[in-house]
Design a protein around this nucleic acid. Structure first.
Length: 436
DNA sequence: CGGACCTTTCCTGCTT
DNA sequence: GAAGCAGGAAAGGTCC
């Protein structure tokens, strides 16, 4: 109701906005209604934005923050972490049946970005642990069940992708062929069927469709294997890298990009390459026997109270249950903490204006106090970094508390100056956060 | 191979 | 009641 909206103050808007932090905290409270406009995105979600430019351009945080998209965030990250960004498009070269759980999420976020979906409303966590094979079998209802807001769009985009996508094979990647524009066209054709679709579409068309998405692709597309260069080399950000000679860029774990999809090309599930032995075949990883247990599966071995009866006497059968069993605790295969300590990750996010103050922000830089703004988003990023799709803020905050007891973080002064929730402070062992 | 370290996972109890 | 915090316990991966 435009008449109703027009009398709202900025505070009213903030109060009414999505409870999952759709509006950044930096959205200014002291605006008049003439300084705010409402608009609906293509999904008919109402958004707010500033009409007038801030008086001091250096402090134009609210405008940029409120319009920030996933690729704005990730593109910024890409430049400092090329191998991560390469992985994010591996799904473009595989049949969805062979997507890993991470590739499902990469596709999801790619679509979310391309369609400018609201980050805060996106239920990405509902697609954690979903494999490409499972995604292929999901019905519209199941998509909507997982994400009531965008489930239908995801379903439609996914069906279109499954039905219409072509997948790059080594044979198609001929000498001198511009695989970059091919793949860019392909993906954009799938995402924007109405705008243009053939490989003849100009680069201007693509930029017009979605500049940030196109940039994201352009940064990664040259990673497609080029046989003319001999044994695998890739071009990242204008530089050619030799995979074998640069272990830092291509670690030996499964973060190595997938050049081709043997399972798709050969039409069966026989996996033969060394790479795939490392990565494990789809059938090996996602067979029924090996599917991850549901999150709440209880194989607990501690807490004697849970196995003793009311009288405190432990029954023989219950005693047997106390024998330690293997459960899904601790890090999973492929997860790594090499050089990625939590406090460093947090410090680096605070260092980056793409994340600070959008996802987390300083409360008092002098004393090292900071606060999570979008806690779940930070947790998902942390999980992404650690190859763990089931990361949540609850788990992240437990790790934060361990880091606190270890001295990397410290207690936040309880003087009423700082919020009691979502607030942390760097400790003695942490360094490098002051000189940001 | 063992141990230290750093998480990750799950949980109970408490506070806001 | 939900969200967040605090911390115990157990387990796993990495590094030395």
């Amino acid at each position: 109701d435009i008449e109703y909206i027009s009398v709202l103050s900025a505070d009213d808007i903030i109060e009414m906005s999505c409870p999952t932090q759709a509006l950044p905290d930096t959205f200014p409270h002291d605006l008049s209604e003439s300084e705010i406009s409402f608009y609906a995105n293509e999904n008919m979600d109402m958004k707010t934005e500033l009409v007038s430019e801030p008086q001091t351009p250096q402090e134009s945080i609210p405008t940029t923050v409120s319009r920030m998209t996933f690729s704005d965030i990730f593109h910024k990250q890409d430049t400092s972490c090329c191998s991560d960004s390469m992985d994010m498009l591996s799904w473009t070269q595989k049949h969805p049946q062979n997507w890993s759980t991470l590739e499902v999420l990469d596709w999801l976020y790619y679509v979310a970005d391309a369609k400018h979906l609201d980050i805060a409303k996106l239920r990405g966590e509902q697609f954690n642990s979903v494999t490409g094979k499972e995604l292929c079998e999901m019905t519209l209802g199941q998509f909507i069940e997982r994400d009531p807001e965008y489930g239908q769009q995801f379903y439609e985009m996914f069906r279109r992708h499954v039905n219409e996508a072509q997948f790059i094979t080594p044979q198609q990647s001929e000498v001198g062929t511009d695989t970059s524009s091919q793949l860019t066209d392909l993906v954009n054709a799938l995402l924007f069927p109405s705008s243009s679709s053939s490989s003849s579409s100009s680069s201007e068309d693509i930029m017009e469709i979605d500049e940030s998405t196109s940039k994201m692709l352009d940064n990664n597309i040259e990673t497609v294997y080029d046989p003319t260069l001999g044994a695998p080399k890739v071009n990242i950000c204008g530089e050619w890298y030799d995979i074998d000679s640069d272990p830092a860029l291509f670690p030996t774990d499964n973060s190595c990009p997938t050049w081709v999809d043997p399972g798709y090309i050969s039409g069966d599930s026989e996996i033969g390459s060394e790479h795939d032995k490392n990565e494990l075949s789809v059938s090996a990883v996602f067979s029924d026997e090996e599917m991850p247990e549901p999150k709440k599966a209880k194989n607990r071995t501690r807490n004697s109270s849970s196995v003793s009866n009311d009288s405190g006497i432990v029954e023989p059968e219950q005693e047997a249950e106390r024998v330690p069993k293997k459960c899904n605790r601790g890090r999973k295969v492929g997860q790594s903490s090499k050089g990625n300590h939590l406090w460093e990750f947090i410090r680096d996010l605070l260092k980056d204006s793409a994340f600070n103050p959008t996802l987390l922000r300083w409360e008092d830089k002098e004393t090292g106090v900071f606060r999570f703004v979008q806690s779940e988003a930070v947790a998902q990023m942390w999980g992404r970094k650690k190859n763990n799709t089931s990361m949540t803020y609850e788990k992240l905050s437990r790790a934060m508390r361990f880091c606190r007891s270890a001295g990397y973080f410290a207690d936040v002064p309880k003087n009423g100056k700082f919020p009691k929730k979502l607030c942390f402070r760097f400790g003695q062992k942490a360094h490098g956060w002051k000189d940001l």
